[in-house]
């Protein structure tokens, strides 16, 4: 076993915290949404590293479920955007 997993998990967590700066700065709502994207990939990475570091294989299942739900939510989201259109959106 390598001893890398703990520091790397912390490093990824630091990345997520740094990304919150972007959420705070914006400037648009779309910029703030970007953090959700990073939390998806980053969160899965952290769960996997922690699962290995702490010897807790159940976290792999947690990461898998998180990824699966994210994929399904993404598809549902896209489908809605697809059929609804956003005719009511106006330029700010």
């Amino acid at each position: 076993m390598t001893a890398l997993e703990w520091p790397l998990a912390l490093f990824l967590l630091a990345n997520l915290l740094a990304a919150l700066l972007r959420a705070a700065r914006g400037p648009t709502a779309a910029d703030r949404m970007l953090v959700a994207l990073l939390f998806g990939t980053g969160g899965v990475g952290i769960l996997l590293l922690l699962g290995r570091a702490g010897g807790n294989p159940a976290l792999v299942d947690a990461a898998l479920v998180l990824a699966l739900l994210a994929a399904i939510a993404g598809a549902a989201f896209a489908r809605r955007a697809w059929t609804d259109g956003d005719a009511d959106e106006r330029r700010p």
Binding site: L64, A70, A71
Partner: peptide, 15 residues
């Protein structure tokens, strides 16, 4: 896990 996350971030990024 990888392709699932790829699909999720591609659709979210598109949205």
């Amino acid at each position: 896990i990888w392709p699932l996350v790829l699909a999720a971030s591609a659709t979210l990024s598109y949205s």
